[in-house]
Design a protein around this nucleic acid. Structure first.
Lengths: 134, 134
DNA sequence: AATAAACTATACCAAAAGGGTAAACAATAT
DNA sequence: ATATTGTTTACCCTTTTGGTATAGTTTATT
């Protein structure tokens, strides 16, 4: 029951981008150094943030990464989902056919986990980069 | 970001025990059949519930498992922790020395995750077996 | 046009976690 | 004694995780 290391790195990368002057391109190496993240690994996860519309990139000299949206419009759930995919506390919440009893709709555990998952999602959603950067 | 299959099985096993007459010993095989859980796997995870004081067991003819406490005093967090150990959303929440930046106390991500984790724990804690059994 | 600086896309790899099975053992009721 | 039922430990295969390597593409600059 935890976030992956990749998500942790993504949180910190995005937060760092948010702390820089808006629109300024920051090189991967600068992010990696500042946040003490393995450079190669960071380079691998950045495309997921780009595909999710959280970050934009520019290649070539003077290139790098910058936020694609204002910090108010990026929250921790956005970043987590970009890296790990949607949260499913239990596999029966992905698809009810995963329930070994084939009883998901009436299952009391299923229902409880569904509520807890929603609450977790909304907690993550409640932290925007702007909030965190205070 | 999910519970393990073992935890799912444990939730259902404990819930089933709670649905039986108090103090009645239920065989592993009955739990496994009712909840459609691989019998051997169930047998492996039950001792964790016993060590946590959630379930008691009796060997020999007529033996089996029963809740060790009333359903009001067992919640989903208890069961999850018994199987998976404590929740740590990020490794820096286990021990700050895991933070690759060695900056956990001031880290904004660390602080946010700490709050989200507490909230998740209290959500899980808010569902007792008695609540679920209605 | 050439070159160097950045990011991109794949592939690969080792270690750990997850999910499950098996076998030998210990306790208990009959 | 014996059959029943849980306990312990070891083993195994697959998937995930965390990370590195290599070759390729874009772009600013000269």
């Amino acid at each position: 029951m935890n976030i992956t290391q990749a998500t942790d790195y993504a949180f910190r990368a995005v937060l760092y981008l948010g702390s820089q002057p808006a629109g300024e391109m920051v090189e991967a190496q600068a992010i990696a150094r500042q946040q003490v993240v393995p450079m190669r690994f960071l380079l691998k996860i950045m495309p997921s943030l780009i595909k999710a519309g959280i970050v934009k990139s520019q290649r070539g000299v003077g290139g790098g990464y910058a936020l694609a949206r204002p910090p108010e419009e990026i929250n921790l759930l956005d970043v987590l989902v970009a890296i790990e995919g949607p949260i499913f506390l239990n596999r029966c919440l992905i698809d009810e056919s995963y329930c070994s009893r084939q009883a998901a709709p009436e299952c009391l555990v299923h229902q409880a986990l569904e509520n807890i998952q929603k609450s977790l999602e909304s907690d993550l959603e409640s932290y925007s980069l702007a909030d965190l950067l205070g």
